[in-house]
Design a binder for these strands. Structure first.
Lengths: 342, 342
DNA sequence: TCCCCATTTGAATCGGACT
DNA sequence: CAGTCCGATTCAAATGGGG
């Protein structure tokens, strides 16, 4: 990076080591072992060492970035707060933080935390007054005609896209999906621009840059990764129709948990639910379970329980009293759905 | 906050001002503890005051929080990276960063950025080794039976929930939705706990705490906001205690020794246990150990032994013959537990 | 060729009570 | 405080084999 001239690149995408601090081995409930990121390159050290490392590469990034260039970084809660603070301290101006919302994250196997289902990207310009590229209309088109939001729901890199080594194992433990880079490059660069990735890995940034007609520079310390990246990018046909591809955003009908009704205040803990006849009742608890017939469980389980049935759709079985009459709780769900649809 | 005793609160929810630069109406507290700031950062002018302010209230928060208490903060990209870094520097241990994904955010009117559609929360414990409350099973129940993720889709505070002043304008510019606090308090506190909100505003934290049977302390500098909060919370009827019980994790259930089953006569020495396929067997001994694969030990040890697995839950691995079919010995444990309840 | 079911896997700061 | 041992704990998507 030191060899690059000042103010020479249009966009930097940096996926630095996260400096994960893992304990012992982690096993799934079926006793299989999780293939964790325990590579040496991720073990930077304590916060002081990581801060020194971060400042060093960020200073170089700042030097080589054009005045109106785009600065992107990605990270998790382990490192992103530190990187974000340094960006601000150095005078970068944050335009957005963007959430990569994983559609298929790894679960929390021990039941100790929320599923770690996202990573955070930061899009910054070099200064407050800079005029970085932002292809607003392209983003809107990519998002079915409505403004692109700061949360992007994309699957993790798997299947045929995931590069394997000779042993059939993943070639890199943290390969990013091309869809993510596609959106980054399409949004904040133009064809012919020069893109720099100082942590190239297996070259996702280069692959997408080539497909989208951007030039690229990739820096990678590990020769094995660099070799994989070279072969990968060489196999890409730059004149293909890939240039026209856009990732489709899937907008499935959102699933609504019964607990959402309690959170939203449409139902309160202690409220009574009735069957359509009004003879069976259930009481709502704070976590979205209900008590009926002396047991606690979901609206579906307890609907089945009081009927002695194998299953039950609680949304249509249980009712609330509305102005003297009984209305199925499905009408409350419809109200939540209406709010969620922008 | 200075008047509160050390290690006295179970949960802190802090919604600090997001940025000194933008509002300009952020006043540094007169009693800010400058000597507590031991960071040696090379700060850029505008962030200095905000950092001093942040460190001051975070240090106090750390002092009053119980060793196993929960620390929550919320913010946007303007301030959350700084707050998150300070939390780490002070020794807080981040458990999750959580994304509040707004279903109805304000659009970006000028088309210059992505719609700012989320805010970031940080859930941290006081130290790495702390054992904070996490109601895993309740969160899973609230999310329709699947593990709660780190991204929460909830609408912004609007409609009847949004407090208005006499002129019909919003009483507070950044009132948080009760649904957000509901999830925070339900996940990481228990009924009877003491919740502190050092930036109380119009009292959303207090309102939800009262509804969920948590005690609360709210600190608010602006008397107008404090007045709104007092009236708002006074109008709330607390929920009766028994309905605040939430789905319990199995870890919270009383522990039953396998030997209890032998003592109670549910199993006899010499009885045979089977794996679910019936191919592996074990023999029960009088002291609650079993013999399998030529060795003797606990049901867990022998379950792991015959599978060649690192560990095993013997309660679900081993079965007994009941009327021709196989049933896990866990059903026998359930019978003992039911008797203990009486 | 298609459907079904079992298997595999992904940036993870992943337990806790008792001796 | 370290060691021991009980025993709780997973979701979405891709892959691959059998019918």
């Amino acid at each position: 990076m030191k060899t690059l001239p000042d103010e020479s690149v249009d966009l930097i995408f940096a996926d630095p080591p996260y400096n994960l601090q893992l304990g012992g081995d982690l096993h799934r409930p079926d006793n299989s072992k999780v293939d964790a990121v325990d590579n040496d390159w991720d073990q930077i050290g304590d916060f002081d060492a990581y801060d020194l490392f971060s400042c060093a590469w960020l200073e170089e990034a700042r030097r080589v970035l054009k005045p109106n260039g785009a600065m992107w970084t990605i990270g998790s809660y382990h490192n992103i707060f530190r990187v974000g603070s340094f960006l601000q301290d150095m005078g970068f101006w944050i335009r957005n933080d963007v959430i990569w919302r994983k559609s298929n994250p790894m679960p929390n196997f021990k039941g100790t935390r929320f599923t770690n289902a996202h990573e955070t990207l930061i899009w910054a310009s070099k200064t407050k007054d800079a005029k970085p590229t932002f292809n607003y209309a392209a983003m809107k088109a990519l998002n079915d005609g409505v403004q692109m939001r700061s949360d992007w729901t994309l699957p993790i890199c798997a299947g045929g896209e995931r590069l394997k080594n000779k042993e059939g194992k993943k070639a890199h433990p943290t390969q990013k999906p091309e869809s993510l880079l596609h959106r980054v490059l399409l949004a904040t660069s133009n064809p012919g621009d020069l893109v720099l990735d100082p942590f190239f890995g297996t070259g996702t940034t280069g692959a997408v840059a080539k497909k989208l007609g951007r030039h690229y520079i990739g820096i990678e310390a590990d020769p094995t990764y660099a070799d994989v990246a070279r072969k990968r990018i060489a196999a890409i046909n730059p004149t293909s129709e890939d240039l026209l591809q856009v990732t489709q955003s899937k907008r499935a009908l959102p699933r609504i948990a019964f607990g959402s009704l309690v959170e939203a205040g449409l139902l309160k803990p202690g409220d009574t639910l009735y069957c359509s006849q009004g003879r069976r009742t259930a009481q709502v608890r704070a976590d979205g379970t209900v008590i009926a017939g002396g047991q606690a469980g979901s609206i579906h389980q307890m609907g089945a329980h009081v009927q002695g049935a194998p299953s039950c759709n609680g949304w249509t079985f249980w009712h609330v009293r509305q102005g003297g009459a009984l209305a199925p709780i499905d009408v409350l769900r419809a109200r939540i759905r209406a709010e969620l649809q922008v």
